[in-house]
């Protein structure tokens, strides 16, 4: 009876050890992966394009500001005028007022 009991305890101990190692390994792996992602390894490859991107963004902002400026004015238009170049003799003249 005693022998049988000891053998049973050893068996139980042998079953838990791999699980603990596996759990510890998983946690370690998780943190290693976390550290890897947090380090932004891809940032180094895109930094060369960062200055170009900033320049394009600044240019885009300026264009948008310019567009908004005149769009605001043209937004006040009552109606689009009907105008075209003609070859008729003029009846009057526009000039600097």
């Amino acid at each position: 009876m005693a022998t049988r009991s000891t053998k049973k305890e050893v068996t139980v101990t042998t079953d838990h050890a791999p699980r603990l190692y596996a759990l510890a390994g998983s946690i370690l792996g998780f943190f290693l992966a976390w550290a890897g992602v947090a380090a932004h390894p891809w940032a180094q490859t895109s930094s060369s394009a960062a200055s170009q991107s900033a320049a394009i963004e600044a240019y885009s902002r300026r264009l948008n500001a310019d567009a908004a400026l005149v769009a605001l004015v043209s937004g006040h238009r009552k109606a689009a005028p009907s105008v075209r170049i003609v070859t008729l003799p003029p009846l009057t003249t526009t000039r600097t007022s």
């Binding site: 109606a79 005028p81 009907s82 105008v83 075209r84 170049i85 003609v86 070859t87 008729l88 003799p89 003029p90 009846l91 009057t92 003249t93 526009t94 000039r95």
Partner: peptide, 19 residues
């Protein structure tokens, strides 16, 4: 309405209907 626009040495005529 044909309207002359002073344009450098020449002249362009624009036809304006309403506006």
């Amino acid at each position: 309405w044909p309207i002359a626009v002073g344009a450098g040495s020449g002249e362009i005529t624009l036809g304006l209907v309403d506006g």
